[in-house]
């Protein structure tokens, strides 16, 4: 119903979704292989991403994820909103505006994390949709691990 309202009124996104929070997504198992593959892809060369001994020498329990690795989990959480028909987000018109990571502690192999998606902003501006989300990643003890913020712009029709 939300989607229908959004389309009829010509709004690129459904503003009623602002302030919404989703149930925790996951759990996501973090493995050495995921961390090494991500490091390879972004050209992160450090031994701490691949060699558990090197990571331990730096005081970490196991190999450490690169600073933007958490996007792998955050985007899975964000999909709950982006793929929700009621949100009215046309993914083919989405442009990524901003991204930010706050690390409460590093992500290491062996972590089991959940992500809670919050819709901080969802509004129309100048014919475009502005959507700001925040994913709070936490470990099995419920302790905060990473906060991932993302802003997307949904281009309005004909723009």
């Amino acid at each position: 119903m939300g989607a229908r309202i959004a389309r009829v009124s010509g709004m690129p996104v459904n503003p009623d979704y602002a302030g919404r929070a989703y149930p925790p997504a996951g759990p996501y198992d973090i493995t050495r292989e995921q961390i090494a593959a991500f490091a390879d892809a972004v050209g992160a060369t450090g031994a701490a991403h691949r060699d558990p001994e090197a990571a331990r020498a730096l005081g970490h329990a196991d190999v450490v994820a690169p600073p933007t690795f958490a996007v792998r989990l955050a985007q899975q959480c964000e999909a709950q909103l982006v793929q929700d028909p009621g949100a009215g987000i046309d993914f083919s018109r989405v442009v990524h505006g901003q991204e930010g990571f706050t690390h409460h502690r590093p992500i290491v192999a062996g972590d089991v994390l959940t992500g809670t998606l919050h819709v901080d902003t969802m509004r129309e501006a100048g014919g475009h949709g502005m959507v700001a989300t925040r994913v709070e990643l936490a470990d099995t003890a419920g302790e905060p691990v990473t906060t991932v913020t993302s802003t997307i712009v949904v281009r309005g029709a004909g723009r």
């Binding site: 450090g46 991403h49 730096l58 450490v64 994820a65 690169p66 990524h96 991204e99 690390h103």
Partner: peptide, 14 residues
């Protein structure tokens, strides 16, 4: 020094 644990936060616009 190759210690990702020392990167506390990062952000960008595209």
């Amino acid at each position: 020094g190759g210690d990702p644990g020392r990167v506390l936060s990062c952000q960008t616009r595209f």
